[in-house]
């Protein structure tokens, strides 16, 4: 089967410094793919290479069946991709519609096709109320809507988003996310995004964690959670010294902070059996599910399985 994106041994060197150190991965058609990593991990460099903005140092990249940097393929790649950048890059003094149409005309579409596409993105991203306003006067969330609409004006097969929600308020973040997910579901578009919000990566089909230019973990969010995150339980005892005694008697390792004891549990049921045994000692408790945050922190601290 062919993949939407196929990367093999991709390297990028800036002088002495190696920003991307030979990474390989594949992205399936129609999937939501998240690229995770701290700042400076090489996420943006990788995405810029895939978007034909930056020359790779070595390795092979195949996007939508076209080979990156092969004779005439970059033009075909550009027709198949849409890119939403970290910053807002449209012209402040032009209206949203002018911005989108001017850029839409650079794809060689027919007049009718362009008009149809505009209709499509306008409906999808609710542009009706902002399309005649100057881009510079829009709020952060409205700008993002326009940015995404611009990236979709030529109906690309693959949408790249470089930290699309960084710096947005929670409500706008949610809107942007819903729009992306809906698009991906309804149009079967491949979505490739970078983020450092763990909860965003959690809804992806496939996640890759990048650290210092290398892949340190990959898998579905569930796989990663099973591997790197665990549930824990926070307990407050009536009497802390009795609690310590009990924990030590049962050889349970714990950490303590302000009288709250945290212990690792294998599952919620495991927590229940422990709780039953210690019931008379316990004043209150809380079972905390493992999250993608734990996965990220754990991988970053230990360097993952690599």
């Amino acid at each position: 089967m062919t993949f939407a994106i196929q990367v093999e041994n991709l390297c990028k060197q800036y002088g002495e410094q190696q920003a991307v150190k030979g990474i390989s991965f594949t992205v399936e058609h129609g999937s939501l793919f998240a690229f995770l990593g701290a700042n400076g991990a090489g996420k943006s460099t990788t995405i810029e290479i895939l978007c034909t903005l930056l020359k790779k140092s070595s390795g092979t990249v195949n996007i939508n069946g076209y080979t990156l940097d092969a004779s005439n393929d970059n033009g075909e790649i550009r027709k198949s991709i849409g890119v939403v950048f970290q910053q807002s890059l449209l012209d402040a003094r032009l209206t949203v519609q002018e911005n989108i149409l001017h850029r839409g005309k650079t794809y060689g579409l027919s007049k009718k096709q362009l008009a149809d596409n505009y209709q499509f993105v306008s409906t999808y991203l609710h542009l009706a109320d902002i399309e005649n306003r100057k881009y510079g006067t829009l709020s952060g969330g409205q700008k993002r809507r326009a940015d995404i609409a611009r990236a979709l004006i030529h109906r690309p097969k693959i949408l790249f988003l470089d930290e699309p929600t960084t710096g947005l308020d929670p409500q706008t973040r949610q809107f942007v996310w819903q729009a992306i997910k809906q698009l991906q579901l309804e149009t079967n578009m491949t979505v490739f995004l970078t983020t450092h919000y763990m909860e965003e990566a959690a809804v992806a089909h496939q996640v890759i964690v990048l650290k210092e230019g290398e892949i340190v973990a990959e898998g579905t969010p569930d796989e990663l959670k099973t591997k790197y995150a665990y549930d824990s339980m926070a307990i407050v005892f009536h009497n802390s010294s009795d609690g310590i005694q009990w924990l030590e008697k049962n050889a349970i390792s714990y950490t303590e902070k302000l009288g709250i004891f945290s212990i690792r549990v294998d599952s919620t049921l495991h927590a229940l059996t422990l709780l039953k045994k210690a019931e008379p000692l316990i004043a209150s408790f809380e079972v905390i599910k493992g999250t993608m945050d734990d996965v990220f922190l754990h991988i970053m601290a230990e360097g993952g399985a690599a």
Binding site: T52, E76, R78, F85, L90, R103, T106, G108, H154
Partner: peptide
């Protein structure tokens, strides 16, 4: 402002 990057993602 890197605005040119946006044009460069078009063919």
């Amino acid at each position: 402002s890197k605005a040119q990057a946006d044009f460069l993602t078009a063919p």
